[in-house]
Structure formats: C-alpha cells, structure tokens
Design a protein around this nucleic acid. Structure first.
Lengths: 114, 114
DNA sequence: CTAACGTACAACCAAATGGTTGTAGATACG
DNA sequence: CGTATCTACAACCATTTGGTTGTACGTTAG
C-alpha cells in the first residue's frame, strides 16, 4: 500500500498513469512528452511498476507500458473503507440522537449514501 | 493531490486516519498508541492536516483530530477516473472485435461493471 | 501557587527522493 | 556492415522525509 500511494503522490507519475491506462505506450514514447531526461521518466515508470500500477512487456527493443486496473481497485477499496468508517461513526451518533429525541432524525450533511 | 496521496503513503498515517475516522481523538491520545515520540506523531498529524485529510480543533489544552470524508472522496474519485479510462479503452477494443467478428463478444476478465 | 499535561517548534541526523549525466548492451534500419 | 534507437544502470547532487531530543508556553489539576 505504501508503494501504491507513494507512486500516486507525484503529478508526473499520475500523468503517465493516465496515459497508459487508456493507451499502452513505450517508455521512450512517454519520455518524449515530458520536459525531463529519459532516465527520469524511466525511474518514474519503475516506481509505478514496483507499485504494480503498471506492467512492462518487452516488444523487440521497446518496453511497452500498460496500466493495471486491479491494483487501482485495491487502492480505491481502501479509500472506500475509510469512508465506511466515517459513515458508521456518524450513524452511531444518529442512533444515539434518535434514541434521546425520537423524531429529530438530524441527518449529517457530510454523509452521502453512495 | 500530491499532498493527499503522499499523506496516505505511510502505514502510521493510514493507521492514524483509521482511528480518527471512526473516533475523534486528541494528538496525545493518538501518540500513546505508537512506539515513537510525541513529536513524531505530531508531525504525522500535521502531514494529514496539510493534505486536508484531517482537521484539528482546539479544546482547552487539547487539540482534537477528526477525519475529513470530503478529501477522501476527492481521492477516491480520481482512482475511479483511472478505472474509467481503462474501461473505455477496453470497450473500444471490444467494439473493434465485435465489428470484426460479430457474435464473439470476448469479454475481458479484468473488466468489472462496477 | 505549583506541578503535571498537551502542544508547538527548532535543531539535528540518516535515509530516501527526484532529478542529472555518462556508459554500455540489444535491437532495428539503411 | 555501421549507425541510430531504446533501454538499463551507476554515480552523483540537492532537497525532502521520518525520526530524534530539547526548550518554551498555555492550560488543567491538586
């Protein structure tokens, strides 16, 4: 998890991810889009790869990069879990209020049912 | 966004977030749970606060920390967007296949309709 | 009032990050 | 064949990170 979120905590890497999620591309094709050295982009891809957000696949002399939706889902699920915690906490307070003053539902504006 | 994901890229911080999402707590109450100095935990909370994942609220001499579900939602949405990119890409390939060999739907096992 | 508690913040340190340049090995092209 | 392209990787550098300790200050408890 540390690896996943760390990989996502960089604008360039998120941009690379955006690109390869919709179209798989070679590392050099990606590098051409950014104002930094090939080696720098190569490192960014390596970080994404270590996090399993991306996979590489050799094709001749090129290395084709493609996104991995499975890892993305795992990350999203974690965020969902945090939101669930919040909802449970609020509903616990709601229950308490409902018990004390029945009829006064007191909905929390931050709580969104999906 | 960098701040948000960077804040999430640390086990201790995610653990703090888990705690305050379900129950708001003072910084020192949090600090007692971890095998590190108060100052270290204080810094972790500061990182979460800079990322707006958490808000602090003074109460006498204590500083009460509570989770912010809104920021969490923003992060989750971004991950959703990446998954959407993937689905659009796959469906584009599907359309192409459907056009070439109608009847052979060829569903991608990675694609999950929500 | 005094002592203990909760917090803020500075100074310091080792390790990791994000970038660079340079070198070298495969693979494709003319 | 020779040359250009794509990749890998090492060495280096400035900055940030995650931790420490120490000091100072407002607030609560005895």
């Amino acid at each position: 998890m540390d690896l996943i979120f760390h990989a996502l905590a960089d604008t360039t890497r998120r941009d690379i991810l955006t690109r390869v999620m919709s179209t798989e591309q070679s590392v050099s094709a990606l590098a051409r889009r950014y104002d930094m050295s090939f080696a720098a982009v190569q490192k960014h891809v390596a970080v994404l790869e270590r996090a399993s957000l991306v996979t590489k696949q050799r094709q001749g002399r090129e290395q084709i990069v493609q996104g991995d939706p499975g890892t993305l889902r795992r990350a999203r699920r974690l965020l969902d879990d945090y939101e669930d915690l919040w909802r449970m906490r609020v509903s616990a307070i709601d229950d308490l209020l409902a018990e004390e003053t029945p009829g006064t539902a007191g909905r929390d504006p931050n709580t969104t049912t999906h």
